[in-house]
Design a protein around this nucleic acid. Sequence first.
DNA 1: CTGTTAGCGCGTTCAA
DNA 2: TTGAACGCGCTAACAG
Lengths: 329, 329
Amino acid sequence: MITIKDIAEMANVSRSTVSRVLNDSGYVSEDARKRVERVVKETGYVPSEHAKSLRTKKTKVIGVILPTIQTETPSRIVTGLGRELSKHGYQILLANTDHDKEKELEFLDLLKVRQVDGIVLIATNTDDKLMEKIKEINTPLVMIGQEAEGVIHVTYNDYRATKELTRLFIQKGHEKIAFIGVDESDRSVGHFRKQGYLDEMAAQGLSVDKAWVQKGIFDIESGYEAMKQILNHAVNKPTATIAVTDRLAIGAMSYLKEQGMDIPTDMAIAGIGASEMSQYLEPPLTTVDYQNEKAGEEGAKQILACINSKPFQERIVMNYRLIIRESVQ
Amino acid sequence: MITIKDIAEMANVSRSTVSRVLNDSGYVSEDARKRVERVVKETGYVPSEHAKSLRTKKTKVIGVILPTIQTETPSRIVTGLGRELSKHGYQILLANTDHDKEKELEFLDLLKVRQVDGIVLIATNTDDKLMEKIKEINTPLVMIGQEAEGVIHVTYNDYRATKELTRLFIQKGHEKIAFIGVDESDRSVGHFRKQGYLDEMAAQGLSVDKAWVQKGIFDIESGYEAMKQILNHAVNKPTATIAVTDRLAIGAMSYLKEQGMDIPTDMAIAGIGASEMSQYLEPPLTTVDYQNEKAGEEGAKQILACINSKPFQERIVMNYRLIIRESVQ
DNA sequence: CTGTTAGCGCGTTCAA
DNA sequence: TTGAACGCGCTAACAG
């Protein structure tokens, strides 16, 4: 392996001079610079990042913890993160928890050991254990998707999005609106989205039948099951349904079709997430675009600012955009 | 930051003894071992990976280069890779080329500089430049998705898959079969899949109308366009279509429906990739399951074997599985 | 403007 | 069985 020492000898200067040329720091005579640059070019030499890290305590690596990369939301966020980070010479060390909360904690430790410069956590919960660990590792960290006191975070306006979706249905004349959510331990997707729905219903003086509110997990199948529950158990049949993710909505639509029901005539439906598929469904699905890639970019900017001790915003709430399609009438 | 030196002092031994305990190397008295272990536990000390890497030249990091993580194939592969690698204490350094061949080359260099122990390349081409660079960087490397002489690779049986799909259509009575492919610079998806189709058609004595064979890129929209081309330009209208990805098939289906054509009566259709959506389409799409996660795991095993100088297979061809659904009749 | 020197945190001889 | 000493490749004082 070729090292700085070799370059120094070949260019007839000291190692420090080579270092200065490479890092553009301190004074170097034009002559010496040229010689070094020539040798570096000829040999294709690149300094060892590890040796550098050992000295500078900087790694130019950002750890990214996520629950899965098999769904569109996290993969879009990572794309946004990667785009912004690579602009500044940072790379991503990936940590996939596979939805395992224990692993989430382990990875925080692990990334700390790897001495990443910062961590981006695509979060699905804000459990006490998690928050404690975050404080404990004491590394610059940005959370995406959940809000949390004392932690830099980028979130979506979950509450307002479902509130607006609910209002949309009501404006179209619906009064019996069902809701397919997820567990409330996920504050953003589970709690706030549900609350927006409930509050708007209440605000418009509409009551909510208990059987209208069902829960799934983050897959298509459970959306199917949830819709089945709604139709089987509701005495008073709803005419519209809000699902907190497009996948849940797709599952729900699948059950509706199986039952020979027409969308949106018999049941209007909306999802959240603006999945690529949503516009190719039958009928095309009304949904909410959360601009995940942009959220990723924003997260990257904040973590970089934090690392470089520049001013950063602790709280960023992304804008969303309603996409109204034929599944709503 | 707490270092090996601190532990040594606290345990009243030398740094080397601590190192021996940590790495289970050389003789250490039971007594000393206990003391060190206790201190390590109490302090929560973990050795610096960077210092270690500097010494041992091993990083326990695998670089993964991919064209995008926004489609199912690569994200499934990464999931498989991650699962297997993390079992052995390795982590993934992500490099997203965003379909840019130049970046692919740059990342190979960059990962080399980062001194990753190995590289997994989810490849979309086998250009000379790329192959040269692979030789040049001289780092253990496994290619997934394309075959290449002299490089460890995991591929799918693209040729046989489309051949079998073609035969399936023919068995069902179809004689005029169209094909939506991608550029042949992608040997696997572009060339081999097309060749399987062409060969089977020829083998069965069926001719192929030029207008039946169209090309898209890897998105839904271009599948739509390709089907439009087929229907507009074919004098002799085909009754079935094979698309080389599910997304292309979805786009094609979208155009067919727009034209009021029935699937599969007016046009039977099949894709490849077993995307999660495929079973929820109308009608459910016939497709081919390539077991991408398993391919990822297999790739991980090979790169680890290569790194640890154990025997490895240079060429692995994954099995596939036909999933026959209602889009074919 | 440049070279010498001194570590960063660790693993690994080599004597003792 | 243990510790002293060295060096991995690099940056950052410091002195010249």
